[in-house]
Design a protein around this nucleic acid. Sequence first.
DNA 1: TGCTTGCACAAACATTCGAC
DNA 2: GTCGAATGTTTGTGCAAGCA
Length: 788
Amino acid sequence: IREMPDEALLSISRLGKGSLKDIREKVDAIDRNSKKLLDDEGMGDTHFLSRHFDSISNHVKQRKLKPYIIAYTDNIHSLEVLNRYFGELEYVSDIEKVIKELKCNEEEMLVVKCFVRYLGIDVNDMVVDALEKIAGTERCMYILQSRSQGRPLEDIGRGSGITRERVRQLEDIMCKGFVQCDKRKRFLNLFAAISDNTDIALENVITNMVDDSIVDIFIYLLKSTLKPHQSYNKKYGLFSMTGDFSYANIEKHMAESNPYFKSDELYEVVEKTSNELAIPALLVEKVIEKNYTCFDTVFCNNQMSLGEKYEVVMKKYYPLGIKVSDEEEMEIFRRRITDMFGNIKLPQSNKAVEARIVEITVLCDRSTYIHPDFISIPDDLVQRIEEYIDQSDRVALSYLEVFEAFKDELLARSNIDNRYFLQGFLKYKLKNKYYFTKDLISKDRGIDFAYELREFIRKNGEVTKKELKSYFMGTSDSMIAQTMARCKDIITIDYNTYMHADRLNITQEDYINLREKLDDLIKGIPVSCRKVYGVIRKENAFADFIKRNSITNYSKLYGILKYMFEDEYEFSRPNIGAKGTDDACNFTIVKKFLRDKKEIEINELFKFCEDNQIKIMKKAKLISCLSDEFLRSDVNKLVHVSKLGLTEDKLTAIKLEVLNILEEKKYMAMMGMEDFSAFPDLGVEWTPFLLISIVQNYMQYVNIVEIPTRNYNLPNCIFVKSDNPYADDYKEIVRWIIKLQHEQKPFKSLVEVRNWLKKEGVILNGIPIYLTARKLLYMDEKGKVVIR
DNA sequence: TGCTTGCACAAACATTCGAC
DNA sequence: GTCGAATGTTTGTGCAAGCA
């Protein structure tokens, strides 16, 4: 107050209702009084200091000293004195040594004494004092309390019988009072000191130090009376003394430079970030506290996307890449993620996991991906590959071609050992330079292999597959054949020779004549092109057409006809049929073969198909197509339904029996089914296959769950009622069955579970890995089998 | 033909922003 | 404080093309 200009003092004197002179006198009196107080009734300076040092609480003694000096005063003179005697000290406790031998003049001693006394003051008392001074009445406390709870002025006004404007005025007065009070007390600096910092005061430090009943009001006042250079951040619960930090930048920097780190690296990370961004370490700690989660031994940024987490695991565990199509490997990957990052929610489907892995890695083999960090290839080699692509005549090159061209060197000098890896690498390395598709690296968007092939054939007339393969290094037969099939304007003369439609010479008249001829020849039955060729060769009307297009064999004719009439007829080399006579003709032949047969061995049926060039991809599909007439009665036998004597009565009896079993046992596994004594005699021996066929065809309310296998000779079916919620999912059915049994008779070990399932016919080999890998079935610490 | 692969995109969910 | 638009992120799916 003594240092205040008259003007300021005058305004205070008005508040205290005294004249300027009165105030000056009062101040002098107080000053004398304090000097006397600090003389401590004749005690020596050293004694005074020691006594007050002892009254400083231990937690203050452990704090750093410098923040307390800053908090104590902004008076330059006092700061000078304190820094002179205490500037070298680190902790508050260190002043003990200094004060014992302190030698200074009277004025300096006064400063030191006041400071030491300040260190001993109870912080809560200080706050209570301040609040009492500015909000002495109950109404004022009510206003502050309500405002601190965020209540609107209107509301508070109603509560205390005044207008909202009056509430605002009172609040304003109290805030100004608080600012005045704070000029001396410098609360934020004090709490910063308690937070061991000069720039930051932590909200939770305030909460801990100040009485619960007033802490909200106090913090509200602090927030409402921030000075321009001060700020409050809600997320981190801290007051900053040196303006606002750019929290977003800090978070971004940390998320980028330290997406995760080991817990024993915490100190280093804090130190490093604090230096890099020139911000207090305390703030970095706060940022970590709020934005990171500690899993076991790893701190992991909460913003870290799944992809970034996957990347960590990819880098740690997969130097040779991960095969994403391998379910078992993906389960292990999932487990590694949860081991490292805790029980985070991972996508249900592996496909979603794959999609993220693909984003952060590069292809290194079929369905296998590797983190780019693990690619090792010398720069000069990369440069030469790039030059090779640039200098190639063609716009689009296959990866295989590039791989073949550099194969030896790649194998010797890099870890790129197949074309997929090269594909992945080039796409990763040169993604901005070229366009990449599944098989091609292209210098021009939209140029694909088909385009290249087409151009080559257009230029070169009739081209053999051999020529194509030597020009398009590294292309496979199937790749050529399939590309050709997509190019409508390429004519396949035979499977080894191709030509471009541009080279044909076809008139409108040709179309009319040929159409007429084909219609004549087909008449409901597909005609072989050999026959067509034989016929038109003899007719004068076509002589010119044959000559113009140098048609020398039926195969070329077929290719040309296909090009001309693709939309009008069905083409299936070497046959041409009427539109609509689809592949079912094969099936018709099979049916013809089965006509009049009452039963047949399945092997015999397939031999017939083979002999007659009827290509059947899936045996099961063919048998299911035949099921309206033939049922599979045993592993290798089809029986005509009429031979079974499957009367309504018998069918009902079978249905009832199946339902009974399902009612009682809940499921029926065909692999374990041996006893058919309860089923009516159908004239053939009962087998699981027969029952499966009947259920498949006649019982909609029973769902058939298939045990995955490629072995067609196994009755790999489990029946459940169709209202079973797991009826569509084999793995879940197994889980459900284990649960059923476990409830009745608990399993003692996983081996026991496996053996039992096998005996029951529920599994073929092992327990589905899904159950164990996802911890749905496991042994707990007590050695008990747990099925979730 | 049956299955895989790679890409693209949509749905679902989350966040930010500005107008009122 | 609310709302909708815009934008961003994550998850899930469809499908053409590729392969054997």
